[in-house]
Design a protein around this nucleic acid. Structure first.
Length: 170
DNA sequence: AATGTGATTGTTAAA
DNA sequence: TTTAACAATCACATT
């Protein structure tokens, strides 16, 4: 399950980064940003050492939620295609072809996931402060948790849109 | 063995 | 505001 790796430029062992800022010209601000990005990754890696199994992954966007289902369908119609890129392209194309109404259910699910993500993040931040050592809370084996979070019936939403303070920009 | 790669869009976090 | 990384997937290539 390390599929989350995807593209990990973190492996950059090249010593080409960390270049001293010699040119005060701001023309290369973009380059500086990129350097910062790399620094971020390195810092994270160095600080954490490797990776945090506890760190909650970002919530899947509506498109990704749709992709999950699309992949299954796509595989059925294209059992020979094994390239992830193929599904990605097809999915993207289909996604754009879909109507907002069609995307609605996926967005709804994505919204829910986001809520959970925030919750997990809270817990993660909380733990982050403590000394990480014993977080192996024994899972309740007596109660197999297959798929409990699957309630779409609850679609009660309060359509109370009252915009009061929405002024920014100057 | 372990892990990056490719391709898509959306979202999140950060500069 | 704007930019970039990252979320899932999986056979394959590379080290």
């Amino acid at each position: 399950m390390k599929a989350s790796k995807g593209k990990g430029p973190v492996r950059k062992d090249k010593k080409e980064v960390l270049k001293p800022v010699e040119d005060v010209k701001v023309g290369k601000r973009k380059a500086a940003i990129e350097a910062d990005k790399s620094r971020r990754k390195l810092a994270k890696n160095a600080k954490l050492g490797k990776k945090d199994p506890n760190k909650p992954k970002r919530p899947a966007s509506a498109f990704f939620v749709f992709l999950e289902e699309f992949r299954t369908v796509y595989k059925k119609e294209h059992p020979n295609v094994k390239a992830v890129s193929a599904v990605g392209k097809a999915g993207g194309e289909k996604w754009k072809s879909m109507s907002p109404a069609e995307k609605a259910p996926y967005e709804a699910k994505a919204a829910k996931r986001k809520t959970e993500y925030e919750k997990l993040m809270k817990a993660y931040n909380n733990k982050e402060d403590e000394t990480e050592d014993d977080e192996e809370e024994v899972a309740e084996k007596s109660k197999p948790i297959a798929k409990v979070v699957e309630e779409e019936e609850s679609a009660e939403e309060d359509d109370e849109e009252d915009d009061d303070d929405d002024e920014d920009e100057d």
